[in-house]
Simulated scan of single mutants.
Amino acid sequence: MKTVIKYILLCLLTVNTVSAQENKESINLSNAEVTPYEVELTQNKTTHILFPSSVEYVDLGSSEIIANKVEATSNVLRLKSVKEDIKPTNFTVITNDGKYYSFNATYKEQPTQLSYDLTKFEKQNSKKQSEVLFKELGNTNPSLADLFMKAIIKKNKKELYIKSKNYSVEARLKSIYTQDGKLYFHISINNKSNLPYEVDYVSFKIKDRRTTKQTTIQEVSLKPTRSINDFQTINGQSKQDNVFMLDQFTLSDKQVLLIEINEKNGVRNQVLKVRDVDVINVKQIDRFSF
Protein backbone atom coordinates (compact mmCIF):
# COMPACT_ATOMS: atom_id res chain seq x y z
CA MET A 1 0.00 0.00 0.00
CA LYS A 2 2.80 2.38 0.90
CA THR A 3 4.45 1.66 -2.43
CA VAL A 4 1.25 2.57 -4.30
CA ILE A 5 0.88 5.85 -2.39
CA LYS A 6 4.51 6.77 -3.12
CA TYR A 7 3.94 6.00 -6.79
CA ILE A 8 0.82 8.20 -6.91
CA LEU A 9 2.64 11.11 -5.19
CA LEU A 10 5.53 10.79 -7.61
CA CYS A 11 3.13 10.94 -10.57
CA LEU A 12 1.39 14.01 -9.17
CA LEU A 13 4.74 15.74 -8.60
CA THR A 14 5.82 14.98 -12.15
CA VAL A 15 2.54 16.31 -13.62
CA ASN A 16 2.75 19.52 -11.55
CA THR A 17 6.36 20.09 -12.57
CA VAL A 18 5.58 19.64 -16.28
CA SER A 19 2.51 21.90 -15.98
CA ALA A 20 4.54 24.61 -14.22
CA GLN A 21 7.17 24.47 -16.97
CA GLU A 22 4.50 24.68 -19.68
CA ASN A 23 2.73 27.60 -17.98
CA LYS A 24 5.92 29.52 -17.32
CA GLU A 25 5.99 32.57 -19.58
CA SER A 26 9.15 34.27 -20.76
CA ILE A 27 9.63 37.93 -19.91
CA ASN A 28 9.20 40.28 -22.83
CA LEU A 29 11.98 42.85 -22.54
CA SER A 30 10.38 45.03 -25.21
CA ASN A 31 8.33 46.55 -22.39
CA ALA A 32 11.57 47.73 -20.79
CA GLU A 33 12.98 49.29 -23.95
CA VAL A 34 14.49 52.78 -23.77
CA THR A 35 13.10 54.57 -26.81
CA PRO A 36 16.05 56.02 -28.76
CA TYR A 37 16.29 59.43 -30.37
CA GLU A 38 17.03 59.52 -34.11
CA VAL A 39 20.05 61.60 -35.15
CA GLU A 40 21.56 62.24 -38.59
CA LEU A 41 25.34 62.68 -38.86
CA THR A 42 27.65 63.72 -41.68
CA GLN A 43 31.38 64.14 -42.22
CA ASN A 44 31.67 67.77 -43.27
CA LYS A 45 29.31 69.30 -40.71
CA THR A 46 29.10 69.07 -36.92
CA THR A 47 25.95 68.02 -35.10
CA HIS A 48 25.33 69.48 -31.63
CA ILE A 49 23.04 68.10 -28.92
CA LEU A 50 22.07 70.28 -25.95
CA PHE A 51 21.23 68.33 -22.79
CA PRO A 52 19.34 69.58 -19.70
CA SER A 53 22.34 68.71 -17.50
CA SER A 54 26.10 68.14 -17.71
CA VAL A 55 27.28 65.19 -19.80
CA GLU A 56 29.00 62.60 -17.58
CA TYR A 57 29.36 59.56 -19.84
CA VAL A 58 29.33 58.84 -23.59
CA ASP A 59 29.56 55.43 -25.26
CA LEU A 60 29.79 55.20 -29.07
CA GLY A 61 28.60 52.09 -30.86
CA SER A 62 31.08 52.52 -33.71
CA SER A 63 34.54 53.98 -34.34
CA GLU A 64 33.12 55.59 -37.48
CA ILE A 65 31.66 58.45 -35.40
CA ILE A 66 33.39 60.79 -32.96
CA ALA A 67 31.93 62.78 -30.08
CA ASN A 68 33.22 65.19 -27.44
CA LYS A 69 31.94 67.86 -25.09
CA VAL A 70 32.17 71.51 -26.07
CA GLU A 71 34.98 73.06 -24.02
CA ALA A 72 33.09 76.20 -23.01
CA THR A 73 30.20 74.28 -21.48
CA SER A 74 29.45 70.87 -19.97
CA ASN A 75 26.03 70.05 -21.39
CA VAL A 76 26.65 70.29 -25.15
CA LEU A 77 27.88 67.28 -27.13
CA ARG A 78 29.21 67.60 -30.67
CA LEU A 79 29.31 64.70 -33.12
CA LYS A 80 30.30 63.90 -36.68
CA SER A 81 31.22 60.90 -38.82
CA VAL A 82 34.85 60.16 -39.68
CA LYS A 83 34.03 59.24 -43.27
CA GLU A 84 31.21 59.25 -45.79
CA ASP A 85 28.31 56.83 -45.85
CA ILE A 86 28.92 55.08 -42.54
CA LYS A 87 26.80 52.16 -41.39
CA PRO A 88 23.87 52.92 -39.01
CA THR A 89 25.02 52.80 -35.40
CA ASN A 90 24.06 54.01 -31.94
CA PHE A 91 25.45 55.87 -28.94
CA THR A 92 24.49 56.37 -25.29
CA VAL A 93 24.75 59.42 -23.03
CA ILE A 94 24.35 59.71 -19.24
CA THR A 95 24.03 63.17 -17.71
CA ASN A 96 24.79 64.56 -14.27
CA ASP A 97 21.13 64.45 -13.22
CA GLY A 98 21.11 60.68 -13.76
CA LYS A 99 19.18 60.70 -17.05
CA TYR A 100 19.94 57.94 -19.56
CA TYR A 101 19.69 58.78 -23.28
CA SER A 102 19.83 56.36 -26.20
CA PHE A 103 20.42 57.49 -29.82
CA ASN A 104 20.28 55.84 -33.23
CA ALA A 105 22.70 57.51 -35.66
CA THR A 106 22.47 57.33 -39.44
CA TYR A 107 24.55 58.97 -42.14
CA LYS A 108 23.11 61.69 -44.35
CA GLU A 109 25.19 63.92 -46.60
CA GLN A 110 22.95 66.92 -45.91
CA PRO A 111 21.21 66.39 -42.53
CA THR A 112 17.82 68.00 -42.15
CA GLN A 113 18.86 69.15 -38.65
CA LEU A 114 22.25 69.89 -37.08
CA SER A 115 21.21 71.08 -33.62
CA TYR A 116 19.03 69.24 -31.11
CA ASP A 117 17.79 70.89 -27.90
CA LEU A 118 16.68 68.18 -25.47
CA THR A 119 15.89 70.74 -22.77
CA LYS A 120 12.65 71.41 -24.67
CA PHE A 121 11.52 67.87 -23.86
CA GLU A 122 12.60 67.84 -20.22
CA LYS A 123 9.20 68.61 -18.72
CA GLN A 124 7.03 66.38 -20.88
CA ASN A 125 9.51 63.46 -20.75
CA SER A 126 10.53 63.74 -17.10
CA LYS A 127 8.21 60.92 -15.97
CA LYS A 128 9.21 58.63 -18.83
CA GLN A 129 12.93 59.38 -18.85
CA SER A 130 15.16 56.49 -17.75
CA GLU A 131 17.43 57.23 -14.82
CA VAL A 132 20.64 55.73 -13.48
CA LEU A 133 22.10 55.62 -9.97
CA PHE A 134 25.54 57.11 -9.32
CA LYS A 135 27.73 55.16 -6.92
CA GLU A 136 28.59 58.22 -4.84
CA LEU A 137 24.89 58.99 -4.27
CA GLY A 138 24.10 55.59 -2.76
CA ASN A 139 20.39 54.73 -2.95
CA THR A 140 19.32 58.30 -3.73
CA ASN A 141 18.71 58.86 -7.42
CA PRO A 142 20.10 62.13 -8.88
CA SER A 143 16.75 63.76 -9.63
CA LEU A 144 15.57 63.15 -6.05
CA ALA A 145 18.83 64.56 -4.67
CA ASP A 146 18.36 67.69 -6.81
CA LEU A 147 14.76 67.92 -5.57
CA PHE A 148 15.99 67.79 -1.97
CA MET A 149 18.48 70.60 -2.60
CA LYS A 150 15.94 72.80 -4.38
CA ALA A 151 13.49 72.24 -1.51
CA ILE A 152 16.13 73.32 1.02
CA ILE A 153 16.76 76.56 -0.86
CA LYS A 154 13.01 77.15 -1.23
CA LYS A 155 12.45 76.48 2.47
CA ASN A 156 15.27 78.98 3.19
CA LYS A 157 15.12 78.45 6.93
CA LYS A 158 17.90 79.68 9.22
CA GLU A 159 18.50 76.69 11.46
CA LEU A 160 22.04 77.81 12.30
CA TYR A 161 23.77 81.09 13.09
CA ILE A 162 27.16 80.45 11.53
CA LYS A 163 28.47 83.28 9.41
CA SER A 164 31.60 85.05 8.19
CA LYS A 165 31.95 88.61 6.99
CA ASN A 166 34.89 90.16 5.16
CA TYR A 167 35.05 93.37 3.11
CA SER A 168 31.27 93.75 2.68
CA VAL A 169 30.82 90.11 1.64
CA GLU A 170 28.93 87.84 4.03
CA ALA A 171 28.78 84.05 3.92
CA ARG A 172 26.29 82.16 6.04
CA LEU A 173 25.64 78.48 6.74
CA LYS A 174 21.87 78.50 7.08
CA SER A 175 21.16 74.84 7.74
CA ILE A 176 22.35 71.25 7.62
CA TYR A 177 19.97 68.40 6.77
CA THR A 178 20.35 64.65 6.43
CA GLN A 179 18.81 61.98 4.21
CA ASP A 180 19.91 58.46 3.19
CA GLY A 181 23.38 58.76 4.70
CA LYS A 182 24.07 62.16 3.14
CA LEU A 183 24.46 65.64 4.67
CA TYR A 184 23.15 68.73 2.89
CA PHE A 185 24.81 72.08 3.67
CA HIS A 186 22.85 75.22 2.72
CA ILE A 187 25.29 78.11 2.17
CA SER A 188 24.37 81.65 1.18
CA ILE A 189 26.74 84.40 0.00
CA ASN A 190 25.57 88.01 0.18
CA ASN A 191 27.69 90.52 -1.73
CA LYS A 192 26.87 93.90 -0.18
CA SER A 193 29.60 95.71 -2.13
CA ASN A 194 29.45 97.13 -5.63
CA LEU A 195 32.30 94.91 -6.85
CA PRO A 196 31.46 91.48 -8.28
CA TYR A 197 32.57 88.59 -6.06
CA GLU A 198 34.09 85.71 -8.06
CA VAL A 199 34.37 82.43 -6.16
CA ASP A 200 37.57 80.50 -6.79
CA TYR A 201 36.70 77.41 -4.74
CA VAL A 202 34.73 76.11 -1.75
CA SER A 203 36.46 73.55 0.48
CA PHE A 204 35.38 71.42 3.45
CA LYS A 205 38.04 70.42 6.00
CA ILE A 206 37.91 68.73 9.41
CA LYS A 207 40.59 70.08 11.75
CA ASP A 208 41.57 69.71 15.37
CA ARG A 209 40.10 72.58 17.37
CA ARG A 210 43.09 73.09 19.66
CA THR A 211 46.73 72.23 19.05
CA THR A 212 49.97 72.83 20.86
CA LYS A 213 53.42 73.35 19.43
CA GLN A 214 54.23 69.70 20.09
CA THR A 215 51.00 68.43 18.46
CA THR A 216 50.74 67.72 14.76
CA ILE A 217 47.69 69.36 13.20
CA GLN A 218 45.27 66.72 11.94
CA GLU A 219 43.37 67.73 8.81
CA VAL A 220 40.93 65.76 6.67
CA SER A 221 39.56 67.16 3.41
CA LEU A 222 35.99 66.28 2.45
CA LYS A 223 34.80 66.39 -1.14
CA PRO A 224 31.15 67.23 -1.90
CA THR A 225 29.50 64.60 -4.06
CA ARG A 226 27.01 67.06 -5.54
CA SER A 227 25.78 70.66 -5.46
CA ILE A 228 22.68 72.29 -6.89
CA ASN A 229 24.48 75.37 -8.23
CA ASP A 230 28.00 76.51 -8.97
CA PHE A 231 29.17 79.54 -7.02
CA GLN A 232 30.79 81.56 -9.78
CA THR A 233 30.32 85.32 -9.97
CA ILE A 234 28.04 87.08 -7.51
CA ASN A 235 27.31 90.55 -8.78
CA GLY A 236 27.39 93.60 -6.55
CA GLN A 237 24.40 94.05 -4.23
CA SER A 238 23.16 90.52 -4.88
CA LYS A 239 22.99 87.13 -3.18
CA GLN A 240 23.41 83.49 -4.17
CA ASP A 241 22.41 80.26 -2.45
CA ASN A 242 23.87 76.81 -2.91
CA VAL A 243 23.48 73.39 -1.32
CA PHE A 244 26.40 70.95 -1.06
CA MET A 245 25.89 67.22 -0.51
CA LEU A 246 28.54 65.30 1.44
CA ASP A 247 28.79 61.77 2.75
CA GLN A 248 27.63 61.53 6.35
CA PHE A 249 30.26 62.17 9.03
CA THR A 250 30.46 63.24 12.67
CA LEU A 251 32.84 65.42 14.67
CA SER A 252 34.31 64.96 18.13
CA ASP A 253 34.20 67.80 20.66
CA LYS A 254 37.85 68.44 19.80
CA GLN A 255 37.22 68.88 16.08
CA VAL A 256 35.73 71.57 13.88
CA LEU A 257 34.58 71.58 10.25
CA LEU A 258 35.96 74.55 8.31
CA ILE A 259 34.09 75.63 5.18
CA GLU A 260 36.42 77.94 3.27
CA ILE A 261 35.16 80.15 0.45
CA ASN A 262 38.00 81.83 -1.44
CA GLU A 263 37.73 84.76 -3.81
CA LYS A 264 39.55 84.49 -7.13
CA ASN A 265 42.31 87.11 -7.35
CA GLY A 266 41.04 88.74 -4.17
CA VAL A 267 41.22 88.83 -0.38
CA ARG A 268 37.53 88.66 0.56
CA ASN A 269 37.85 85.06 1.75
CA GLN A 270 35.31 83.54 4.13
CA VAL A 271 35.57 80.79 6.75
CA LEU A 272 32.55 79.09 8.35
CA LYS A 273 33.24 77.07 11.51
CA VAL A 274 30.91 74.14 12.20
CA ARG A 275 30.97 72.42 15.62
CA ASP A 276 30.18 68.85 16.53
CA VAL A 277 26.74 69.75 17.98
CA ASP A 278 25.76 71.44 14.70
CA VAL A 279 26.29 68.16 12.84
CA ILE A 280 24.73 65.90 15.48
CA ASN A 281 21.52 67.95 15.68
CA VAL A 282 20.68 67.96 11.96
CA LYS A 283 17.09 67.40 10.81
CA GLN A 284 15.63 64.95 8.30
CA ILE A 285 14.64 66.19 4.85
CA ASP A 286 11.69 63.81 4.49
CA ARG A 287 9.49 66.19 6.50
CA PHE A 288 9.57 68.69 3.65
CA SER A 289 6.57 69.22 1.44
CA PHE A 290 7.73 69.17 -2.17
Rank of each mutant, 00 (worst) to 15 (best):
residue 264 K to D: 05
residue 176 I to E: 11
residue 195 L to V: 11
residue 271 V to E: 01
residue 238 S to A: 03
residue 246 L to E: 07
residue 275 R to Q: 12
residue 223 K to T: 15
residue 233 T to K: 06
residue 236 G to K: 08
residue 185 F to S: 13
residue 204 F to K: 04
residue 232 Q to W: 06
residue 219 E to M: 06
residue 230 D to I: 12
residue 277 V to W: 03
residue 172 R to F: 11
residue 225 T to Q: 11
residue 182 K to I: 03
residue 206 I to N: 00
residue 219 E to P: 01
residue 254 K to G: 05
residue 236 G to M: 11
residue 227 S to T: 07
residue 274 V to H: 01
residue 174 K to N: 13
residue 265 N to T: 13
residue 211 T to W: 05
residue 225 T to K: 10
residue 271 V to R: 08
residue 239 K to S: 15
residue 222 L to N: 13
residue 226 R to A: 14
residue 187 I to P: 13
residue 204 F to N: 03
residue 209 R to C: 05
residue 244 F to R: 13
residue 260 E to W: 00
residue 244 F to T: 09
residue 256 V to G: 03
residue 197 Y to C: 10
residue 177 Y to W: 01
residue 177 Y to R: 14
residue 207 K to R: 11
residue 260 E to K: 12
residue 244 F to N: 09
residue 234 I to L: 07
residue 216 T to P: 00
residue 275 R to P: 08
residue 193 S to F: 07
residue 243 V to A: 07
residue 169 V to K: 04
residue 170 E to A: 05
residue 235 N to Y: 13
residue 211 T to A: 02
residue 229 N to H: 12
residue 208 D to V: 10
residue 237 Q to H: 06
residue 216 T to I: 13
residue 187 I to W: 09
residue 187 I to D: 05
residue 185 F to R: 00
residue 254 K to C: 00
residue 206 I to H: 04
residue 250 T to V: 12
residue 274 V to K: 00
residue 237 Q to F: 06
residue 224 P to S: 11
residue 228 I to K: 09
residue 248 Q to R: 15
residue 269 N to Q: 04
residue 177 Y to K: 12
residue 223 K to L: 09
residue 195 L to F: 07
residue 253 D to L: 11
residue 197 Y to S: 02
residue 174 K to S: 14
residue 229 N to M: 13
residue 212 T to D: 08
residue 246 L to V: 11
residue 223 K to C: 06
residue 253 D to H: 09
residue 191 N to W: 05
residue 242 N to I: 10
residue 279 V to A: 03
residue 181 G to C: 11
residue 244 F to I: 12
residue 251 L to I: 06
residue 243 V to W: 03
residue 199 V to Q: 11
residue 250 T to C: 02
residue 184 Y to V: 04
residue 190 N to H: 02
residue 209 R to N: 11
residue 237 Q to T: 07
residue 271 V to P: 00
residue 231 F to C: 08
residue 270 Q to R: 15
residue 264 K to F: 06
residue 208 D to W: 02
residue 192 K to I: 04
residue 261 I to L: 04
residue 220 V to E: 09
residue 277 V to K: 13
residue 213 K to T: 08
residue 234 I to V: 03
residue 259 I to V: 15
residue 206 I to D: 00
residue 220 V to G: 00
residue 217 I to F: 04
residue 277 V to H: 07
